[in-house]
Design a protein around this nucleic acid. Structure first.
Length: 246
DNA sequence: TTCTGGACCTCCTGAGAAAC
DNA sequence: GTTTCTCAGGAGGTCCAGAA
């Protein structure tokens, strides 16, 4: 019974077009069916069918707004599942690291297309340096944030990943709201480019939202994030100058 | 082991509906 | 009228069980 259910769910992601759509949606934004079709390199009607199937399996939800129909990942757990599958694909050799592709359809997203020139190389480097992992920061910057917050005592791992009183204070001064709600405040999320953990959960999501609102970082194309020089990441134990950068 | 026919899947074009 | 999306129908490819 469970085997059949697992096979059915896996079959939904087994199609390269639907997998591409899911990877595109990992940036946490809502996309129109037309945009998804363009990203996957398929016709609009075909994309609509794929979205219907993804929605039926609970991977995505549709939000009607006027004549447009927006599609987004159903919830953060789905995003984590897709991110982990992508990470597994990389570590198992099915997909090369950022910038490569092993799908049977070569016209897929820029993120997984083989690097053939300067522009794709730069894109891959930007993704590797700093990007969004659904709703939080990932890449070299994401891993550095975890390391920095641990090193400066803002986060503690003695009893699982917890925010220390000092961490609460520092984040408060930065204007980052600290409220867990139904989601865990902090948890580890394996980074598929760095092969190390970065921070996920309600707090990293709030930090990214605050960073974008305050202009510390700017979304720079699909998933890539540009860090501005005046970003106060030093308060979180991150030495931006020590990172390799894109 | 190879061939064959049916079932299934993906993707396309074209028509039509709905919203602006 | 234009844009965006869904639906219908069909082409082409793949998979698989059964036969030779």
């Amino acid at each position: 019974m469970e085997t059949i259910a697992l096979a059915e769910v896996a079959a939904v992601l087994a199609d390269p077009s639907r997998a591409t759509m899911c990877l595109v949606l990992l940036d946490g934004r809502a996309w129109t069916v037309g945009e998804l079709a363009k990203a996957a390199g398929i016709a609009l009607s075909t994309a609509s069918e794929h979205v219907t199937r993804l929605a039926g399996a609970g991977f995505v939800v549709r939000v009607k707004q006027g004549r447009a129909s927006y599609v987004r990942i159903a919830d953060p757990r789905v995003a984590e599942l897709i991110e982990h599958l992508a990470q597994h694909a990389v570590t198992s050799g099915a997909l090369p690291r950022a910038g490569g592709s092993a799908t049977r359809n070569p016209r897929k997203t820029a993120e997984h297309r083989p690097v053939t020139g300067l522009k794709p190389t730069l894109r891959a480097r930007r993704l590797g340096f700093a990007r969004t992992c659904y709703d939080h920061l990932a890449g070299e910057l994401g891993v550095a944030l975890r390391d920095g917050m641990l090193a400066t005592g803002l986060v503690d791992t003695a009893d699982g990943l917890t925010l220390t009183p000092r961490g609460r204070e520092v984040l408060g001064t930065l204007g980052v709201p600290v409220a867990a709600g139904r989601r865990p405040l902090l948890r580890d999320c394996l980074d598929w480019t760095e092969r190390r953990d970065h921070l996920a959960g309600a707090l990293p999501a709030a930090l990214l939202e605050r960073a974008v609102d305050a202009g510390w970082v700017r979304r720079d194309g699909h998933r890539a994030v540009k860090v501005l020089a005046e970003a106060p990441f030093a308060a979180l134990g991150v030495d931006l100058g020590a990172l390799t950068g894109p």
